[in-house]
Simulated assay, not measured.
Amino acid sequence: MAGLSWLAPTLLHETSPMNSEPANTAHEPSRGIDPDLIAGVIIVLGAGALLTRTSDMPGMTALLPVTMLSALILLGVLLIGRCVLRRRRQTVAAIKVFDNAKRFIGIVASIAIYVAAVALLGFYTSTAVMIPVVAWCFGYRNLKGVLLADLIFTGGIAIIFVLLMGQELPTEFFLR
C-alpha cells in the first residue's frame, strides 16, 4: 500500500463531492521528452561549438563572445537541471511544445531575415529596422518607446564596439 501513496491525494481530490474542480494533474508524470530539456541541450551544444571557434580570435575581440557563450552554456545547464528536478519530483503535467506554431515560425523567420539583412545592409541599418518591427509584431505599440529603445540599443552597441573596443561591425550598404 505504501507504493501507492502518490495515488491517494489524486483519488481523494477526484472523488470528493464538495470539490467541483477538475482532477489535479500536477502529480502526473509527463509523457515524452520535455521541450525545455531539448532546448537546453541544443543551447549547450550550439554555444559549445561556437565557443571552440573563438580560440583564434585576439584577446579583446574574443572577450564578449566568450563571455556570452559561457553564459549561454551556464543557462542551458540550468535549464537541463530544472527539467531533471521536475522529472524527479514528478510534478510535471504534459507540456505542449508549441502554443502557437505560426508565432514560432515567425520568430525563426525573423532571425533568418535579420542575419541575411546584416550581411546585405550592414549591422546598424538592419538592427535599427528590426527592433521596431519585432516590437510591433509582439504587440508593443508605443512609437516613442520603440524609437527610444532602438536608439539606446543601436547607439549602445556602437559605443561599446566602435569607441570602447575599436571593433568594426559589418559595414553599412551605403558606405561600401
Rank of each mutant, 00 (worst) to 15 (best):
G40D: 03
P58K: 06
I80W: 02
P9V: 08
L64N: 05
T10I: 14
L75Q: 04
S16Q: 07
A49C: 11
A62V: 06
L64M: 15
T52P: 00
G40A: 05
D36L: 01
P29N: 04
S20A: 11
G46N: 10
A71K: 01
M68F: 13
R82Y: 08
S30F: 04
I33Q: 01
I42Y: 06
I80R: 01
L12M: 10
G40P: 04
A26E: 14
N24S: 11
P65I: 09
H27L: 14
L69F: 06
T25K: 14
C83T: 06
E28H: 14
E28W: 15
I33T: 14
I42F: 14
I38E: 03
V84P: 00
S20M: 10
L45W: 06
M60C: 03
S16C: 12
V41R: 03
A71I: 14
G46E: 05
D34F: 01
V44P: 07
E14Y: 09
A47L: 02
P29H: 07
P65Q: 11
R86I: 06
H13Y: 10
G40T: 03
I43R: 06
P35M: 06
R82V: 01
P22Q: 09
G46H: 08
L63I: 08
A26W: 11
L79Y: 00
A47F: 00
P9F: 07
L7C: 11
L79V: 04
L78D: 03
D56I: 15
A62Q: 04
R89T: 02
R53C: 04
V92R: 15
V84C: 01
A49K: 03
R31E: 12
L45H: 08
V66R: 15
N19D: 15
R86A: 11
V92N: 09
T54V: 13
R82D: 09
D36T: 01
R86F: 01
S20L: 10
P22E: 05
A39T: 10
G46A: 13
D56S: 15
I38H: 03
R82N: 12
G76Y: 03
A71E: 02
L64D: 04
R87M: 06
N19E: 02
M60K: 12
V41M: 07
P35K: 07
I43K: 00
R87K: 14
Q90N: 12
I43M: 10
V92L: 13
G59C: 02
P29Y: 04
E21S: 13
N24V: 05
M60D: 12
T54R: 07
G76D: 05
M68G: 09
E21V: 05
L74A: 14
L7Q: 11
L11E: 07
P9R: 07
L7K: 05
R88A: 11
M57R: 08
R53H: 14
I73V: 14
A93M: 02
L45Y: 11
M18T: 13
A47W: 05
V41G: 05
L64T: 10
T61F: 03
P65K: 10
N24I: 07
L72W: 11
E28T: 09
M18F: 15
T54S: 10
T67I: 12
D34I: 03
G40V: 04
A93E: 09
T61C: 00
T91W: 03
L45M: 15
G76I: 00
L12F: 09
I33K: 02
G46T: 13
